[in-house]
Design a protein around this nucleic acid. Structure first.
Lengths: 251, 251
DNA sequence: CGCAATATTGACCACTCTCAATGAGGGTGG
DNA sequence: CCACCCTCATTGAGAGTGGTCAATATTGCG
């Protein structure tokens, strides 16, 4: 149930406490005792590899998942065979909240790179949160945050043009890496151009062209999956829709 | 439908029980006793009129709102002055879930037509749900449902073309009217073409042209705000991206 | 009744998609 | 270790969907 093969139990335990802490408790004032209880229900799973599925569309819902290391994409297969990428999930981020309603997953979660993921059986979490009011509150907040995030994506897809979308994507990644203690200006993309385009409602070619243009304009360096942000200010301006100074005019 | 200003307190009470029932409890097995408790925390407000705001972006969050009669739109003012319509809310639907995280509204809610709205103080709801496990579960479900709904919208905006979007919008309205006991094929739009376009990530003109075309193709009758759906099967096909048979060819 | 807001319709054009070809890695097997 | 293949990424050319601009109904409201 708990420890797995190679790693020592204690290490995993600490790592998992960390993940449950940052993801579920950090913003709240949870008693150390309660953190302990929460920690006890978190399952540790063996490392997962690129291409593995955490769950698939249609699977029965049992658990939420927290990315500990690595990255995961969620995507909704659409009726006509295509799919919509719903999100890329970095360490500390929670997956599976949309499955609570019908006790069934309505999207799939695929590992992008070798990753460690904690599993939190939802029934246990629910029991626990009905006895720990601050945990219940934190759960409401987490669900609410997800809604807020999705609404931000709606604005992105409804109002922003291609370059604003890609800039927003990069800025978002940058922020999230920063918060987790990674470099905010130098990172690797674990997802393909195709997946980025799908996520942003753009064609692969558009994404590729934009990377090239951003590089030409000195906003960043890009080599394959390696990204170095050079001018985050200007990137932020682009996100805000201020093409302003660097108004591109093709002669 | 339920009468307006004239209603006695008891009627409102019943109407509100009804709304809290259908929205918060119906799918769950709540004890009559618990329903009573829930009902006691629901505030009844006087009817609101077109243009009134339930809350504004930046307002402190106190309550969730349930539309009893009428309709409400929520929209997020974006940095550059524009706005993104996030949703249209019909009777029985819940508003404000995205505000829990920061205890602050990050969108605004505007009344589209004379409406009755119930207010549910969130603190009370939270207290109640920590003592009634099935209510807590139902809250999780409601929040989860909202996430699922938003993910559907992401697919709409990311993958669907203009006619698929409008068809999906009409089918969604139709379904929601039907569930609430109204006609699923004959209804009035309380929102403007501009608002529809904004919601669907389309220009007003595109929406207008699509209504005209749908009418020409015999899918519906439209006169200003009055909609009559004539061929819901074909509308469903369009939503699914099957242009198939009625492949439109301009001669 | 008249003004303002909303809708409709047309013409034009731009952004982005599609199609197609080429190039660059990464993995596998000989 | 290299040849090969396959996927992924880049780049170009052309086309189409939907946006923008503009003019004209139509409606609603004071």
């Amino acid at each position: 149930m708990n420890g797995r093969k190679i790693i020592s139990f204690e290490n995993i335990k600490v790592a998992c406490r960390n993940c449950s802490l940052t993801t579920l408790c950090l913003p709240m004032g949870l008693e150390p005792d309660d953190v302990e209880k929460l920690d006890d229900i978190v399952k540790r799973n063996r490392p997962l590899h690129r291409g593995d599925h955490l769950f698939r569309d249609g699977d029965r819902f049992h658990s939420l998942y927290v990315v500990k290391t690595g990255s995961v994409k969620t995507y909704a297969p659409s009726e006509d065979g295509g799919e919509q990428v719903l999100g890329f999930h970095l360490p500390g981020e929670l997956i599976g909240l949309d499955a609570i309603e019908h006790e069934m997953h309505n999207c799939s979660a695929k590992i992008l790179e070798t990753s460690a993921v904690c599993e939190i059986p939802f029934e246990h979490l629910e029991e626990l949160s009905s006895t720990i009011p601050s945990l219940q509150h934190q759960m409401f907040r987490l669900l609410s945050r997800e809604i807020g995030h999705d609404e931000g994506m709606l604005t992105l897809l409804g109002k922003k043009n291609a370059e604003e979308r890609l800039a927003a994507f990069l800025v978002s990644l940058s922020d999230r890496f920063k918060r987790r203690g990674f470099s905010s200006t130098d990172f690797y993309l674990s997802m393909s151009r195709h997946e980025i385009g799908n996520y942003l409602g753009l064609a692969v070619e558009t994404v590729s062209r934009l990377f090239t243009r951003f590089q030409e304009e000195g906003l960043l360096n890009v080599e394959r999956k390696h990204i170095q942000l050079l001018d985050t200010d200007k990137l932020h301006n682009i996100v805000q829709g201020e093409d302003s100074d660097s108004k591109r005019q093709y002669p």
